[in-house]
Design a protein around this nucleic acid. Structure first.
Ligand SMILES: [Mn+2]
Ligand SMILES: [Mn+2]
Ligand SMILES: [Zn+2]
Ligand SMILES: [Zn+2]
Lengths: 141, 141
DNA sequence: ACGCAATTGCAAATCATTCGCAAATCAGTT
DNA sequence: AACTGATTTGCGAATGATTTGCAATTGCGT
């Protein structure tokens, strides 16, 4: 498991390798992403970055998110229609259970489900490129 | 399995029972929905309805879709972020495999996956309210 | 330190969907 | 069949998230 600091360095190395400039704004946004333990949306990331550096704009947050997503460094989710949510992509693959009452996002991983999905796709003559599994649930009374 | 004509009658009965007016526009939109075998978006439904009755507007399509969704008569999907897609909800529950090259949507149902999902949620202390399972795949070479 | 292409912030543009409102139309009641 | 009033409609404007144009700024190789 990577530490936030390790993730931060990895992001910077990634960006440098991809030939783009290491601007102050990008460093700050990347730092916020590296430290996030939840699944923040663009506006939340903007606010967290703005506290660290008032020269960060929402536009640049969006541009940086797209940049990192295209490089596979972060992942975009559309849990609730409307606002996209992000998380860094260095962790192992996992799926999500969303508490419909609180909005809390719980991560889980099931080998059996992953395998079943591949089997189903194979039966239909397909190879899976990616998939989306989201459970929306309520805490047991 | 219901025929389009049966679905159409069911939609109308549903609407009548819910106390709303059976306007010409609603009848046309509902007819288009009843006959749809794919997963059309609001704009596609609008065009199909407009051909049958030029007095249908996109606004009314959106309003009717919301009405039917609130009554559980149709289901909304967010396959690709951006545009919602719809299908009538009288069929059995199923999940979707989307061909990433053609956009074709293939329906499937797996008892094992449905059951596994419930087990996973239960282990985490939750009851599933609804879920989203979408496989994005490519035809085997 | 210099030079210039890449990047930024800001405001305006997009795109799907919703909303306000005056005009039209259902669906009962004479 | 005409009357009536609340519901529904089409239109255009508003919304909210995200993208984009552009002039000003800045990273970075020289
Ligand atoms: Mn996650
Ligand atoms: Mn379907
Ligand atoms: Zn998975
Ligand atoms: Zn399912």
């Amino acid at each position: 498991m990577m530490t936030p600091a390790q993730r931060y360095e990895r992001f910077l190395t990634d960006l440098k390798a991809s030939g783009v400039r290491l601007t102050e704004q990008r460093k700050v946004i990347v730092k916020v992403l590296a430290e996030a333990r939840d699944h923040p949306n663009a506006d939340e990331l903007y606010h967290r970055a703005y506290v660290l550096d008032g020269s960060v704009s929402l536009s640049t947050v969006y541009r940086t998110l797209r940049l990192l997503e295209d490089h596979g460094a972060i992942q975009r989710h559309d849990f609730d229609a409307g606002r996209a949510r992000f998380e860094n992509a260095d962790t192992d693959h996992h799926d999500h259970l969303i508490d419909v009452d609180t909005g809390q996002v719980i991560e889980f991983r099931s080998e059996r489900i992953e395998k079943l999905q591949a089997e189903i796709a194979a039966e239909l003559g397909f190879d899976i490129v990616r998939h989306k599994l989201e459970l929306y649930g309520r805490k047991r009374g």
